[in-house]
Simulated scan of single mutants.
Amino acid sequence: MTDLKQLKTDFVEELLPVYDKAEVLTMFSWLAEDLLGLRTHDLLLNTKMELKESQLLKFEEAKSRLKAQEPIQYILGYAEFFGLKLKVNSKVLIPRPETEELVQWILEDHLSKDLQLSIIDLGTGSGCIPIALARHLPQAKIKALDISEEALSLAASNSEENGTQIEFIQANVLELETLPEVDIVVSNPPYVKFDEQQQMKDNVLKNEPHLALFVQNEDPLIFYRKIAELASSAVKKPLVYVEINQYLAQETEDLFKRFGFEHIEIRKDFRGNERMLKAY
């Protein structure tokens, strides 16, 4: 019989050629909690625990998928975001820590004001942004839009499981003629140029939806132009919060200026990259 200590030793040894050790250990902890119901302290106290054949098979399957560089969030079927547990699959991007910082910025600006805000999220994916905002701004009226029917279905399920009320709309952002009257527009649109692919890891390139990631090299700001156009032409000009391509921060700022936004702030993420912009 294989005990927990041997399982961990084999897991680390087989995945070290693909990932660094800290990442392997983190993935082992996540799988142990999800598949075995063991938390970190349990792993330390139960090294001699013998595992059932069914448990070993599940670990072997997960290990094989990790070797093929499938993201662990897709293997588990969920991701953590802003303290929430959200279902994810290959039809949506895995929520990122940088996007948590975008949500935090909005909350910093509005949490203490006790306003009945109206918000729209353009390109919602898993629903991570509007669901996190709804949990912290329960009085807000929030809409979320995406072109993908599969993404919207998943986002609606995530919203229900996290007890939030959000109106989901299927539409192509680039084909919108007007926006609903809202106080805030938020978006994490596609912004990675195709020629930046060589900088990305295979686990992203081979698994996450390219529709939500990439834009054409010759027009990388296409979504920001549309967002700026829609927001600037609204009867009541909303605040705009967007996640941006760190290599195009200045170009994105200039674009919003051309659409008449006088106040623009760019923030760096926890890695020191210029990844967020607010315009009004």
Results as ranks from 00 to 15, higher is better:
Gln216Ile: 02
Asp219Phe: 09
Gly260Phe: 10
Ala234Arg: 08
Asp195Gln: 12
Thr2Ala: 09
Glu251Ile: 06
Ile120Tyr: 03
Gly163Ser: 15
Leu152Glu: 00
Asp183Gln: 10
Arg271Thr: 10
Ser153Glu: 12
Met276Ala: 11
Pro190Ala: 04
Thr2Lys: 14
Thr252Gly: 02
Pro71Cys: 05
Cys128Asn: 13
Val182His: 00
Leu16Cys: 01
Pro17Asp: 01
Ala79Asn: 06
Pro138Asn: 13
Pro130Tyr: 01
Asp269Ser: 09
Leu230Val: 02
Leu84Asn: 01
Leu57Gly: 00
Thr252Ser: 03
Val182Ser: 01
Gly163Ala: 12
Ile184Lys: 00
Ala134Ser: 14
Lys58Gly: 02
Arg225Asn: 14
Gln104Val: 04
Asp3Thr: 13
Ile119Gly: 02
Tyr74Leu: 13
Trp30Tyr: 13
Met27Gln: 15
Arg65Ser: 04
Glu149Ser: 15
Tyr247Ile: 05
Phe168Tyr: 14
Pro190Gln: 03
Ile227Met: 10
Glu175Leu: 14
Pro220Gln: 08
Glu175Gln: 15
Arg267Gly: 08
Asn162Thr: 05
Tyr74Ser: 10
Arg65Gly: 04
Val215Asp: 05
Gly127Met: 05
Val242Phe: 06
Glu101Pro: 05
Thr164Met: 02
Phe168Ser: 02
Asp114Glu: 14
Leu117Asn: 08
Pro190Leu: 03
Leu84Pro: 02
Lys67Pro: 01
Leu31Thr: 00
Lys67Trp: 00
Ile75Trp: 01
Leu57Ala: 14
Ile131Leu: 00
Lys226Val: 03
Tyr78Ile: 07
Arg225Leu: 12
Ile266Pro: 01
Val242Ser: 13
His263Ser: 09
Val24Phe: 08
Ile147Thr: 08
Pro130Met: 03
Tyr280Gly: 12
Ala228Thr: 06
Asn172His: 06
His110Lys: 14
Pro95Tyr: 11
Phe259Tyr: 15
Phe223Arg: 00
Tyr224Leu: 03
Arg65Thr: 02
His110Leu: 09
Glu61Gly: 12
Ile264Met: 10
Lys268Asn: 10
Asp10Gly: 09
Leu76Ala: 07
Glu177Met: 09
Glu33Tyr: 11
Phe270Thr: 05
Ser148Asp: 09
Ala79Cys: 09
Leu56Asn: 09
Lys8Arg: 14
Phe194Pro: 00
Asp219Trp: 00
Asn46Ile: 04
Glu208Arg: 08
Phe11Met: 04
Lys5Arg: 11
Lys58Leu: 14
Lys87Cys: 11
Leu31Phe: 00
Leu255His: 04
Leu102Ile: 06
Pro220Lys: 09
Gln170Val: 05
Ile147Asn: 07
Asp114Ile: 06
Phe11His: 04
Asn89Cys: 04
Lys85Gly: 07
Lys237Gln: 14
Asn207Glu: 08
Thr178Arg: 12
Leu179Arg: 02
Gly77His: 01
